[in-house]
């Protein structure tokens, strides 16, 4: 699984049309809210997180990445029962990290994407747990086995999803 270090000039930066920029995150949020009621196992996936990682890595712009993550995370918070900001903070960090990483590494191949997604999933969960326990006083139990399993599941789904979303990329 090669992760090649490349210079900024060698890495292509992509952009997306406005319908894709708005529609894909909304669709991900909708599916995340709708599908688990029909397929309970689907709740292990975090589609908004995968979309955040994808957009951040494709744009390779940390500012754009963190704002994308913040926006998606905050909307996800708005749909939930807890105070707004927990997912917002976690996805802001992930968006920033993914875009920063995307600016330095070539993450176009499946292996790299798998590892990057797994890593960012664990980072996302760690930030979420910290904020939820530290600020909102939610009782959450960290389980390495569960988180790694969920991270792998998300990474596998993410690889497929990224190749699907690659079709919407537009060269700058």
């Amino acid at each position: 699984m090669p992760i090649t270090y490349t210079s900024g000039e060698q890495i292509e930066v992509y952009r997306f049309s406005i319908p894709v920029t708005v529609g894909v995150p909304l669709l991900a949020l909708f599916l995340q809210a709708f599908v688990p009621r029909r397929l309970p196992f689907f709740s292990i996936f975090d589609l908004p997180l995968l979309v955040t990682i994808f957009f951040a890595m494709a744009r390779r712009n940390p500012i754009s990445g963190l704002f994308t993550g913040a926006a998606i995370g905050l909307v996800q918070d708005m749909l939930g029962a807890y105070p707004i900001g927990i997912y917002g903070i976690a996805k802001t960090v992930v968006g920033y990290g993914a875009s920063s990483l995307g600016a330095k590494l070539d993450v176009e191949n499946a292996g790299a994407r798998l590892l990057v997604t797994l890593g960012f999933y664990l980072l996302h969960q760690a930030v979420y747990f910290t904020v939820a326990r530290g600020m909102v006083s939610l009782t959450l139990n960290w389980s390495w086995s569960r988180e790694i399993l969920a991270g792998l599941a998300n990474a596998v789904l993410g690889v497929g999803l990224y190749f699907l979303l690659d079709r919407f990329k537009q060269r700058t």
Partner: peptide
């Protein structure tokens, strides 16, 4: 018609 979209929030 749907859920909160979070694995941790049961709503």
């Amino acid at each position: 018609i749907g859920s909160s979209g979070s694995d941790l929030s049961r709503s």
